[in-house]
Simulated assay, not measured.
Amino acid sequence: MARHVRKGDNVIITAGNDRGKTGKILRVIVEEDRVVVEGINVRKKHLRRSEMNPQGGVIEKEMPIHLSNVSPVDNKGKATRVKFENKADGSKVRLAVSTGEQLGPELRKARK
C-alpha cells in the first residue's frame, strides 16, 4: 500500500499527547507502519555506564508514532489528505487534496 508520508515531509500530529504540533519526519518504519518525527513523542531513556558512555545518564529520544496519527502539512500550515495521481507522461506524484499542490518529488519518473 502506498504511504501518504515520506522521510523529510513536514507533518502535523492529529492524535495523542502532541496533537497540533508539527515536525519533520526523520525515519519511516515500514514493517510497523510507524514514523519518527523530529521533536515529537520525546521520551527519557536511562543509560547504563559503558565503555562508550562512561558516565551513564539520561538521554531524550524521539519514539515512533503510528502513521495514522500524522498528516502532511500544506503551504498554509494546515493538515491535508493526500491523493496519488498518474500523469500522462507516466510519472506518479502525491498531491494535497486541499490545495492541489504537489507534495515532494515524483514517486515514479516519467517514461522516455
Rank of each mutant, 00 (worst) to 15 (best):
V28Y: 05
G57L: 03
T14A: 08
K83R: 11
V73K: 01
I29C: 05
G104A: 06
E85F: 13
D18C: 06
R108P: 03
L67H: 06
P72S: 04
A110D: 09
E62S: 10
N69M: 08
D18L: 03
R108V: 13
R27N: 06
S91Y: 10
D18G: 03
M63Q: 11
N17C: 12
G90S: 10
E101A: 04
V70L: 00
G90P: 09
V73I: 08
I25H: 00
D89V: 13
I29G: 02
A110H: 07
R94F: 05
A79W: 00
V30Y: 12
V30H: 09
R6D: 08
K45N: 11
K61V: 12
N86L: 13
A96W: 01
H46K: 08
I29Q: 06
K45F: 11
R6W: 03
M63T: 10
R49P: 12
P72Y: 01
K61C: 11
G56Q: 07
V30E: 14
G16E: 13
G104D: 12
L107D: 03
E51N: 15
N10E: 12
G57T: 05
G56M: 05
S98Y: 02
N17P: 15
P64S: 04
L103D: 03
L47G: 02
N86P: 10
A15P: 08
H66R: 04
K83Y: 15
A2Y: 13
L67T: 03
A88D: 14
R3K: 07
